[in-house]
Each structure stands twice: as structure tokens, then as C-alpha cells.
């Protein structure tokens, strides 16, 4: 028991020391930019909903628990959470285990500040600032994006190529990994801005960790986004691996049954047991 409590003490100390950087730097703005801006803007709906005034609109506890784990709430059947999820094309918001209550409070305080500032001053200027201009992609971008995605060309900072974890239904590619989401329709789900921001500053813990020390440069982000747009546009003409799997599974299973029947029929008069069977069993 003594040893156990000792261990808990050591563990708690470890946890505290790890999160100390957040405790020390409760900079709401920095935290917001680091963790939220990939999907959320203030004063403008982006991938996720506009967060301007969110603290006024929703109950604070609700917001906190939604930030911590939105999927838990959706699965639990919280009507508001489900409605939001549907409204936003069912794009999953990641859980934020890295954010402590203090961090969230800091972020929410920052949002409060901004809300107050913008409602008093000129709102239109801010809105223009977050306006996303559709990106013009060249064919060159698409080509480079393909090379980067498939790993034929290495990222400048030597990050892992996308295909290691992601799959795209494309005749030009071999099957990608299944560790992360299928990106065939990523463009229709997220649009230019969403793709650029997610690729540039990944909000997903695993992806963020993977590119922590070798972030993509901005040109690469544009090229990848261009390629994803391209594959989304031509996805109808590509063979899909998933359909193949189904045909294989059903056809293979059904074929096996048919094959067994045919074998049973063709060789129905085969020697099924030793001629001594009856003698042994007498």
C-alpha cells in the first residue's frame, strides 16, 4: 500500500510537471491558434462553426465537455451535439486530451475578449480578414502533389509520405495505408481552406505528432491540396478498393460453396473410407 501510494505521488508529480507549460503560459490566443484555427474561425463559419459569441450562445460546461470529447457527447445522444455534427457535414472534431481545464478556460476567455472587441468595433474588417479566397491550382501542383502523396518525392523536411497512413481510390496509386482516413473525398468534405489548414497544422494527435519535427512547407501543402482536389474530381472514374473487397468476399465465399457442391457432385462416387471400415467397426 505504501509503495502504491508512493507511486501515485510520483505519477502525479510527473503529470503536473508535464502540464506545467500550460499552467505557466495561459495565453488564450496562442492556444486558440495552436489548437483550434485549423477548423474554427472567429466571425466566420469554416470547417467547424463560427466560434464568435459561442460563450454567450451555449452553456459553459457544455462547451467545455464538447471541446474535451465531442464524439462522447454525440454518441451519448446529446441532441444539440448531434444537430451540430449533422450541420457540419459530420466532420469529426478531435478530442483534445492535451488541453487542461485551465487551457480551455484560457481559450474561452480569449474568445470572450474577441467577441466583446468585435461587437464594439468594426466587425466587417475582421470578417474580411478571415475570408478565404479559393486557391487556383496549376497542373504542375497536381503532379507534384501526386508525387508527394505517393512518396515518390520526399517532403522537404523529410516527413512521412501521406500514403503510409492514408488511402485514395486512384488508379495511379497503389493501395494506401489503413491507419488513417480514406482521403478520396476529402476535398468535398473540407474544401480548399480546410485541407490547407489541416495539412499545414494537423489537429489530429497522431498526425500532429508525426509532423511535429518535420512540418510540411507551404508549397507542399498547396500541392497536396491540389492533388486531393484532383482525385476528388476524378473519383467516379477510378476503381474502388472497397467494392473490390466486397466482390472478393461475396464472390469468394459463394464461389467456395459452389465449388464444394460441384466437387461433391463430380466425385460423389469416390472412395470415402477404407474398405476395412466395416471390418474395424464390427
Amino acid at each position: 500500500m505504501k509503495i502504491f501510494s508512493k507511486r501515485i505521488t510520483v505519477f502525479m508529480f510527473f503529470i503536473l510537471s508535464c502540464s506545467s507549460q500550460y499552467i505557466i503560459g495561459q495565453d488564450g490566443e496562442a492556444l486558440f491558434k495552436q489548437n483550434c484555427t485549423a477548423c474554427h474561425k472567429l466571425g466566420k463559419k469554416f470547417l467547424g462553426p463560427d466560434l464568435l459569441g459561442v460563450t454567450k450562445k451555449r452553456d459553459k460546461d457544455w462547451v467545455v465537455s464538447f471541446i474535451k470529447s465531442s464524439q462522447t457527447m454525440i454518441k451519448a445522444g446529446d441532441s444539440l451535439a448531434v444537430a451540430l455534427f449533422k450541420e457540419n457535414n459530420e466532420v469529426i472534431m478531435n478530442d483534445q486530451p492535451g488541453l487542461s481545464n485551465n487551457d480551455i478556460n484560457a481559450i474561452l476567455a480569449y474568445i470572450d475578449e474577441e467577441t466583446a472587441a468585435r461587437t464594439s468595433s468594426s466587425v466587417s474588417v475582421v470578417e474580411e480578414a478571415v475570408e478565404i479566397i479559393p486557391i487556383e491550382y496549376t497542373e504542375e501542383d497536381v503532379k507534384n502533389g501526386h508525387l508527394l502523396f505517393s512518396g515518390k518525392k520526399r517532403f522537404a523536411n523529410k516527413g512521412t509520405s501521406c500514403i503510409s497512413c492514408h488511402h485514395i481510390d486512384s488508379d495511379e496509386l497503389i493501395s494506401g495505408g489503413i491507419l488513417a482516413k480514406d482521403l478520396t473525398a476529402a476535398y468535398s468534405r473540407m474544401g480548399d481552406a480546410g485541407l490547407v489548414s489541416i495539412i499545414g497544422t494537423p489537429p489530429f494527435p497522431v498526425m500532429a505528432a508525426a509532423y511535429k519535427n518535420n512540418a510540411l512547407d507551404s508549397l507542399e501543402v498547396i500541392q497536396l491540396s491540389a492533388y486531393l482536389k484532383h482525385v476528388d474530381e476524378v473519383k467516379e472514374e477510378q476503381q474502388t478498393i472497397n467494392n473490390g473487397n466486397q466482390v472478393l468476399l461475396l464472390g469468394g465465399g459463394g464461389g467456395l460453396v459452389v465449388l464444394f457442391l460441384v466437387i461433391e457432385l463430380l466425385w460423389r462416387r469416390r472412395l470415402k473410407r477404407s474398405v476395412k471400415h466395416d471390418i474395424y467397426n464390427r
Partner: peptide, 14 residues
């Protein structure tokens, strides 16, 4: 037809 499975093959017990 029977090259991979000869249906009239005696077995060791025979």
C-alpha cells in the same frame, strides 16, 4: 479430371 484428387485411390488402411 482426377489428376489432383484420384477418387479411387486405395488408402493405407486398405
Amino acid at each position: 479430371k482426377n489428376i489432383f484428387h484420384n477418387p479411387n485411390m486405395p488408402v493405407l488402411d486398405d
